[in-house]
């Protein structure tokens, strides 16, 4: 008996077939299953099965009080856990009218932006890895590691941060943290030139990415495209400016 993971010949055409890909596959970066309808090596259509990453955070939230749920949000996206953790704190603060001290707001923004850079470095590195470029991946992870070290020192975690608290953050930062951040900013600015030379100006990278995966403009409204994908479509949208949170 054929299992649902077997290759299945299309009944309507001799040239096409159905192929299962995943849920464990090196290129999915996690667990994702794709049911592919193939003609040779060309994908005619695909149905993603996304539930393998589902971890029932909603049901957990339903059965806990707000404070007990605090460690969960950073597990929703462990690549940018700080942003989820603090975003959750801000939602509760907004609903309850809790004010956050100015110092804590600044600490949160610094921690958030560091986490955002480390998150971007991860997609940049792995995206290039998927394109066949191994070296930039090592550069990106080297830089990302420096951010993780800075955040590890003040939060005690490397990925799944639980640094925010309702009304502030759990621990204050010290002068060493400020120096580490300032040093990293200086260091990282110099790295831009390396990334530009190594990646953006690289003809192989351009051949493999320019003109691939074009979004038509009506997708913005139909699907609610957001983030880097939206900006890549020519919309100067930045949630930090268009709907500011914190300071």
């Amino acid at each position: 008996m054929a299992s649902r993971f077997d290759v299945v010949q299309d009944t309507e055409s001799r040239d096409t077939y159905y192929l299962n890909m995943g849920p464990q596959h090196p290129s999915t970066h996690g667990v994702l299953r794709l049911k592919l309808h193939m003609d040779g090596e060309t994908i005619l259509s695909v149905e993603p099965v996304i539930g393998y990453g589902h971890r029932a955070h909603e049901k957990m939230a339903e059965n806990r009080d707000y404070l007990k749920f605090l460690p969960n949000p950073s597990r929703v996206d462990y690549i940018s856990g700080m942003i989820y953790n603090i975003g959750y704190c801000q939602a509760i603060e907004r609903a309850m009218g809790i004010e956050v001290p100015e110092r804590a707001e600044y600490i949160r923004i610094i921690a958030n932006e560091l986490n955002r850079i480390s998150s971007h470095l991860l997609w940049l590195g792995t995206f290039l890895l998927d394109l066949g470029a191994f070296t930039p991946f090592l550069y990106a992870f080297d830089d990302r590691e420096k951010i993780l070290d800075i955040l590890d020192r003040v939060t005690g975690s490397r990925l799944t941060y639980c640094y925010g608290r309702f009304g502030g953050v759990v621990l204050d930062v010290d002068d060493i943290f400020l120096k580490n951040v300032a040093d990293f900013c200086t260091y990282f600015k110099d790295r831009f030139e390396i990334y530009t030379n190594l990646v953006i100006d690289n003809v192989i990278f351009q051949e493999r990415s320019v003109g691939i995966g074009i979004f038509e403009q009506d997708l913005v409204q139909k699907y609610g495209v957001s983030g880097p994908a939206l900006r890549a479509m020519g919309h100067a949208y930045d949630v930090r400016k268009d709907e500011p949170y914190g300071i």
């Binding site: 029932a56 957990m60 059965n63 806990r64 009080d65 007990k68």
Partner: peptide, 9 residues
């Protein structure tokens, strides 16, 4: 067969 995660609070 046992309890679901977390007791209602």
């Amino acid at each position: 067969e046992g309890e679901a995660d977390g007791q209602p609070v």
